Simulated assay, not measured.
Amino acid sequence: MAHRTVLVVLFDGVQSLDITGPVEVFAGAATYVGDSGSTYRIRTASLDGAPVRTSSGLTLTPDHALADAPAPHTLLVPGGQGTRAPDPSLIEWLRVRGPRARRLVSVCTGAILLAEAGLLDGRRATTHWGYCETLARHHPAIEVDPDPIYVRDGNVATSAGVTAGIDLALALVEEDLGREVALTVARHLVVFLRRPGSQAQFSAQLAAQTAQREPLREVQQWITEHPGEDLTVESLAARASLSPRHFARAFQAETGMTPGRFVDRVRLEHARRLLEDTADGVEEISRACGYGTPEAMRRAFVRTLGAAPAEYRRRFRPALTP
């Protein structure tokens, strides 16, 4: 099998981690596999072949001008400040050359460049959570999903902010070269193999705003520290010394989500961590996280993550699963 060429598009204002994160994954896989011929060959290119300056001030020197770049197996488009007012010539190059790639990948706001080139129309996609609304508003032909860390739609893959590009790259390596290679790379980079694409972009605590009033803030903190307790609206309202109706209304107004939604996220997060970090059984974890029964926990995992708890654990801790 011929080498898989990974072509990374460079431009001024690019986010350096959007490039280096996935590149380290592909390069690590190539190092592990060696000279088998089925590994990756990484190339970078800017519009004119000139060095570009990243948003953090680093200068990157590309291998090629885009016009002279080799035909890619995987075309990787990073994000960054430079996506806010992209060069029309770059958009035109993507419009013409993008469909020729075997696999089209974006990291963070690189999805905006693909959208401008018309390459995401009729597809499901994601980007950094802070730009999902903008992407959806400017490109109504795209089904924008703000929650997952990455989305696969046919041969097009889009990922959320910065580090999510590493998760997506690991998933692609696993698809190309197998789980053992991807796991070895993940261990070398000291990251998990692998967060499921359906995992939320940010935690319950980050997803919800911090309540302004002290009693509500204390309730938020108490929920995160006691996921296995009685977390009904009535119980939480009593802890805040408010009526259930007043509490529910105030909680949503100040945090941006209902108490039930916040509790669901906290419990799912806690269950995930226990599956990843401990050898506790699913029944024990379901009780500790307030689900009551393994079936209730299974339904929550399948609904939100697209995988049952046992499958989720296999992805992270294969040694714990028979």
Rank of each mutant, 00 (worst) to 15 (best):
A29Q: 07
L120Q: 08
G228A: 07
L60M: 13
N155A: 15
T59F: 06
S56T: 03
D264Y: 05
V144N: 04
L193W: 10
I42V: 15
T163K: 00
I19Y: 09
W93N: 14
R53P: 04
A101S: 15
Q220C: 11
T5N: 08
P215D: 01
H138A: 15
A164L: 05
S46F: 06
L206F: 10
E180T: 14
G118E: 13
H139R: 06
P88Y: 15
E284R: 06
V185A: 09
E24P: 03
G79P: 09
T321S: 07
M297A: 06
G122Q: 13
R123D: 11
D153K: 05
G28N: 02
G290Y: 09
Q221K: 07
H226A: 08
L193K: 05
E174Q: 02
A200W: 07
V263M: 05
G178Q: 05
R249K: 04
V144K: 02
R4Y: 08
T210V: 09
L231P: 11
P99A: 10
H138V: 02
E180P: 00
V52A: 08
P318F: 08
F192T: 06
H128R: 05
D18R: 14
L113D: 02
P70L: 15
R194Y: 04
S198Q: 05
R103C: 13
A200L: 01
S56M: 12
N155P: 08
A248C: 02
R315Y: 00
A240L: 02
P72G: 09
G80V: 11
M257K: 14
A310M: 01
P70F: 11
V52Q: 08
Q15G: 06
G49C: 12
V33S: 07
S286L: 07
W129K: 08
A136L: 12
S203H: 06
T74W: 12
L168S: 04
E175D: 13
A117P: 09
G260T: 14
G178K: 08
A136V: 09
C289T: 06
